[in-house]
Amino acid sequence: MIKIEKLEKVYKTEEVETTALNGIDLYVKEGEFVSIMGPSGCGKSTLLNVMGLLDKPESGSYKFIDTELLTLNDRERSNFRKRNMGFVFQNFNLIDELTVFENIELPLIYNKVPATERKKLVNEIIERMNIVNRSGHFPQQLSGGQQQRVAVARALVTKPKLVLADEPTGNLDSSHGNEVMELLCELNETGTTIVMVTHSSHDASFSNRIINLKDGHVISEKVNKSRNEELI
């Protein structure tokens, strides 16, 4: 579904130029769950941001199904993003002023989904995420794990083809982290493609394939056999 070739991204500041991505080649198949690992500063987040159309690379190609995304203008990128992608962040990034329900509803509003339909979709996903009795709460009133579940719910409510998760368990203890990972797996099983950045090999073991980055290169790739067998 995703085909990335010779992706290069350079950050220029006044003093130094940092090559965050240095010729990345990558593919992701539809329905796959891919983990990206590597030492701090190797360019994982940058890669994810580029894949999420939040950042523009200097050169290379990024094909989604058969559309070349890097030639799109801002408006087209924005539209493509809101229709096809969902995001989960390490620090949840929920809006403090909105309730759980409203947070989840937000992407639907921006996708111009009618109100009754929205209500239905949000309630569905809230049920699925096991946070029904929390729907009127504000983010501060939830535990970290609950907050991340809300964030996942928000990423999924539009039924995106691709979910991008940057260290989704980074701010959680192991039991809460597992909850989130299981959620992502369930999701993957229903056909959503997931690309996740993580430092934890435990988390990575949930995925089909693990890609190792270093200094902006892909240095190795490992297919997670146990998971793939399960899949079959």
């Binding site: 999420g52 939040l54 408006r75 924005s78 539209n79 993003r81 809101k82 995001f87 990034n93 929920l94 809006i95 403090d96 002023e97 937000l106 992407p107 921006y110 996708n111 928000r154």
Partner: peptide, 16 residues
């Protein structure tokens, strides 16, 4: 700022 960023990622247009 954070709220604006999140909304933007979720697809809000500049005008919105």
């Amino acid at each position: 700022l954070k709220e604006i960023a999140v909304r933007k990622i979720l697809g809000a247009t500049d005008v919105q």
